[in-house]
Amino acid sequence: MEKNNFIDYIRIFCRSGHGGAGSRHFMRNKLTSKGGPDGGDGGGGGHIILRGNKQLWTLLHLRYYKNVLAENGESGSKNNRTGHTGADIILEVPLGTIARDEETGKIEAEILEDGQEFIWLHGGRGGLGNSHFATPTNQAPDYAQPGEPGTEGWKILELKVLADVGLVGFPNAGKSTLLSVITAAKPKIANYAFTTLVPQLGMVEYRDGKSFCVADLPGIIEGAAEGKGLGHRFLRHIERNAALLFLIPADSPNHKQEFEILVNELEQYNPELLQKDFLIAISKSDMLDEELRQAITKDLPSNIPHVFISSITNQGLVELKDKLWQILNKPVSS
């Protein structure tokens, strides 16, 4: 269920509506045998619109939308009647969704707020009727504009999870356990690699009713930047996190090397990720004595803050929340 229900990448064919043609009509009734032009304008084609919805956390509901075709505008008619505008199609997407063109790879929209709307593909404009082209020297124009065609193409919707803090670590580093303790999230926990197959979000309640969002992301393995393991499907979600919490278990054979491998995979994927704020948490620290803690501290980078925690005994979790809150709310340097 977990694997099937989280969809963060959709490829769909989209076409906005064609504009309706303007009318070539002349007034004719029992009182007027040769009246002037009265052809109405064509209606505009329907747009394809993206709308942010904070209640959604996956693109699952769009999984079977292989073709998204907006309605065409109607042609104009006599008596200067404008044709009906084609109905728009509104695609509701979770916050953090990026829309791009498949052919060019260009990012065309980024949905970050609830209710935010973006006209992804504009419908074609309706053509003008012949009444617009009457002049003193041409009082009976026998032509009108055709409607403009809509826009079409293969498009990509890609979800990057929005969270304040991303948990980064090898499989079985204790990320899911930590998330289950400091938030109300209930991720799957087991003693084998890649228990977490999709991002899990949880809200951490802080002091005085304040809170921040943490994402448990599928574990990195060496070579993830080249697509090994869960590869890019995991790494794309890190781009949205304001801070990264590196979880390294106390029983790791080499804490410094493990941290360097994690950082290297981030750099290989996107060097800009190294500009984020880092915090190292040594998990499973209930098995350490003071001498071992000092030895691990000497092994860690001196320029990156760290904290010793245990999700089982709740050791260091208050300090962890404090440090994360300070990182997320530090003054922005001008």
Results as ranks from 00 to 15, higher is better:
residue 266 L to K: 02
residue 312 I to S: 09
residue 201 L to P: 12
residue 171 P to K: 09
residue 91 L to E: 07
residue 41 D to P: 00
residue 63 R to S: 05
residue 314 N to E: 15
residue 199 P to F: 11
residue 254 N to V: 10
residue 148 E to I: 00
residue 113 E to S: 13
residue 224 A to M: 08
residue 249 P to R: 15
residue 216 D to C: 07
residue 264 N to Y: 08
residue 19 G to K: 04
residue 122 H to K: 14
residue 50 L to H: 07
residue 317 L to C: 13
residue 19 G to M: 05
residue 230 L to N: 08
residue 34 K to Y: 14
residue 10 I to T: 05
residue 278 F to K: 08
residue 261 I to A: 03
residue 75 S to A: 09
residue 187 P to W: 11
residue 5 N to P: 00
residue 134 A to S: 14
residue 63 R to N: 09
residue 132 H to C: 05
residue 281 A to D: 12
residue 28 R to N: 09
residue 133 F to Q: 09
residue 170 F to D: 05
residue 69 L to A: 01
residue 201 L to K: 15
residue 30 K to A: 08
residue 322 D to C: 04
residue 159 L to H: 11
residue 207 R to P: 00
residue 246 F to S: 03
residue 187 P to I: 15
residue 220 I to F: 08
residue 244 L to D: 01
residue 263 V to S: 12
residue 65 Y to K: 14
residue 294 Q to Y: 09
residue 236 R to F: 00
residue 121 L to D: 01
residue 143 Y to H: 14
residue 6 F to P: 07
residue 61 H to F: 04
residue 277 D to H: 09
residue 111 I to H: 05
residue 246 F to L: 12
residue 266 L to G: 02
residue 149 P to H: 08
residue 251 D to Y: 12
residue 309 I to Y: 10
residue 271 P to S: 00
residue 187 P to S: 13
residue 305 P to Q: 15
residue 323 K to D: 12
residue 268 Q to S: 08
residue 115 G to E: 15
residue 49 I to A: 14
residue 213 C to V: 06
residue 58 T to P: 07
residue 16 S to R: 08
residue 259 F to G: 05
residue 227 G to D: 07
residue 83 G to P: 02
residue 243 A to W: 05
residue 214 V to T: 04
residue 147 G to C: 00
residue 230 L to Y: 13
residue 289 D to S: 06
residue 191 N to D: 12
residue 31 L to A: 06
residue 16 S to D: 06
residue 282 I to D: 05
residue 47 H to N: 15
residue 244 L to G: 02
residue 35 G to A: 14
residue 15 R to D: 00
residue 71 E to N: 06
residue 46 G to K: 04
residue 147 G to V: 00
residue 125 R to C: 07
residue 331 P to T: 15
residue 56 L to A: 10
residue 172 N to R: 15
residue 299 D to W: 08
residue 162 L to N: 07
residue 223 G to L: 02
residue 70 A to S: 11
residue 231 G to A: 03
residue 260 E to P: 02
residue 285 S to Y: 10
residue 34 K to V: 11
residue 174 G to F: 05
residue 85 T to A: 04
residue 171 P to W: 04
residue 168 V to W: 04
residue 272 E to Y: 01
residue 72 N to S: 12
residue 332 V to Q: 07
residue 332 V to Y: 03
residue 75 S to C: 02
residue 287 M to K: 15
residue 216 D to H: 07
residue 289 D to A: 06
residue 88 D to Y: 08
residue 221 I to A: 01
residue 91 L to Y: 10
residue 209 G to F: 02
residue 189 I to L: 03
residue 89 I to N: 06
residue 86 G to H: 04
residue 323 K to W: 08
residue 62 L to C: 09
residue 258 E to Q: 15
residue 295 A to T: 15
residue 50 L to G: 05
residue 322 D to P: 00
